[in-house]
């Protein structure tokens, strides 16, 4: 009576479960919502929804970059440094030169370009020199953050250029209540990016190449995938996403603080891994990742709502990561065992 044989008899169940356990994740979220809602009825409100959406907005874009890197078999800890470098630099740059100050899109193009440029550092060391990804991105994290603080600036900037200033107060939805909760219009690009990455991974040659490289780089190479080119694309694209996410974050909080973001990498990596992406590469999905980000944001939100002190949040996310990854590792092992049984001709 293993899960695999159950799913074999009932294909709809395996479809519902999803190839990366997205179904289980969605179920967890649902149970969590119902549980917290029973204890604290004020949980069921538009406000909670908007809060969770607002808090996931930037992390979900960062997570898309991390997802691509993890699918390719790597790990990235430099994306937060790239993000804050881009966000902060764009504010500094437009404030000082006045270039594109009145237009927010120019700022985002700028952030994307800087992000890609910083991504070259990772790409060159990983694809060019074949160094381990964790160590390379640890190194570039230090370089990028140090360079920003040493050369771009180390002061918190409250003054924004006109274009970004307007954008930061542009809300899509406003829920009024005891205190009004608002959802920034920046959720739109975040959703668009998720759709785009999903299409890229599913329907393009590069996207399939990313899975192939993550599954087995040598096989991908023999199958004719340009492995080095794909790796370059991965780290440049991750840089681009991090740059955009960084500027969205800086715009949304309306205070350009260069000391922010770095140190929050784990939340995003945890979300991606919880979302079913395998650290060994070759596995992962956009929908799972989005659910993972939402779950972590939801847990943080409900801890506050349930009156648990903020100091517990760190431990809770750590525990969630261990439990999630442990459960995946265990289920991978049991699936392997049942596959062995099938291979040996045992009744399924």
């Amino acid at each position: 009576m293993t899960t695999a044989s159950d799913a074999g008899q009932r294909p709809w169940l395996s479809r519902l479960r999803g190839s990366n356990n997205e179904g289980i994740l969605a179920l967890t979220i649902l149970v969590l919502c119902v549980g917290v809602g029973v204890v604290e009825p004020s949980f069921w409100s538009v406000r909670t929804m908007l809060n969770v959406a607002s808090n996931s907005m930037t992390n979900v874009i960062f997570a898309m970059g991390v997802l691509i890197v993890i699918i390719s078999g790597g790990i990235d800890v430099s994306f937060m440094a790239i993000g804050i470098f881009c966000g902060y630099s764009v504010i500094v740059l437009t404030n000082e030169t006045g270039f594109g100050a009145s237009s927010a899109p120019v700022g985002f193009v700028l952030a994307a370009v800087i992000g890609v440029a910083l991504g070259v550092l990772n790409a060159a060391a990983i694809a060019g020199l074949h160094l381990p990804t964790l160590i390379v991105t640890l190194g570039t994290q230090g370089i990028i953050r140090g360079a920003m603080l040493a050369y771009v600036g180390s002061k918190v900037i409250p003054d924004y250029p006109e274009g970004l200033d307007k954008l930061s107060t542009n809300y899509l939805v406003t829920a009024t209540g005891t205190s009004s909760t608002r959802l920034s219009v920046l959720i739109v690009p975040a959703v668009l990016i998720c759709v785009l990455v999903s299409l890229l991974l599913r329907y393009t040659m590069v996207g399939r190449g990313i899975y192939a490289v993550g599954g087995d780089a040598e096989s991908a190479r023999r199958a004719g995938f340009p492995v080095v080119g794909i790796q370059f694309f991965i780290y440049l694209f991750a840089g681009l996403l991090a740059g955009v996410a960084g500027l969205i974050h800086v715009t949304r909080v309306r205070l350009a603080n260069p000391y922010e973001l770095v140190g929050g990498e784990l939340d995003v990596i945890a979300a991606v891994v919880l979302g079913g992406a395998s650290i060994f590469g070759g596995k992962g999905s956009v929908s799972g990742t989005v659910l993972g980000v939402v779950l972590i944001s939801l847990i943080r939100n409900s801890l506050i709502l349930l009156g648990v002190p903020g100091s517990w949040q760190r431990a809770a996310v750590g525990l969630l990561l261990i439990v999630g990854v442990g459960a995946q590792a265990l289920s991978a092992r049991s699936r392997r065992t049942s596959a062995d049984l099938v291979a040996e001709g045992a009744p399924a």
């Binding site: 160590i135 190194g139 230090g142 370089i143 953050r145 140090g146 603080l149 040493a150």
Partner: peptide
């Protein structure tokens, strides 16, 4: 901050 940069450069450079 420069020391932070140096750490990263040393790490990637040596490896």
């Amino acid at each position: 901050f420069l020391y932070q940069i140096a750490q990263g450069v040393i790490l990637i450079g040596v490896l």
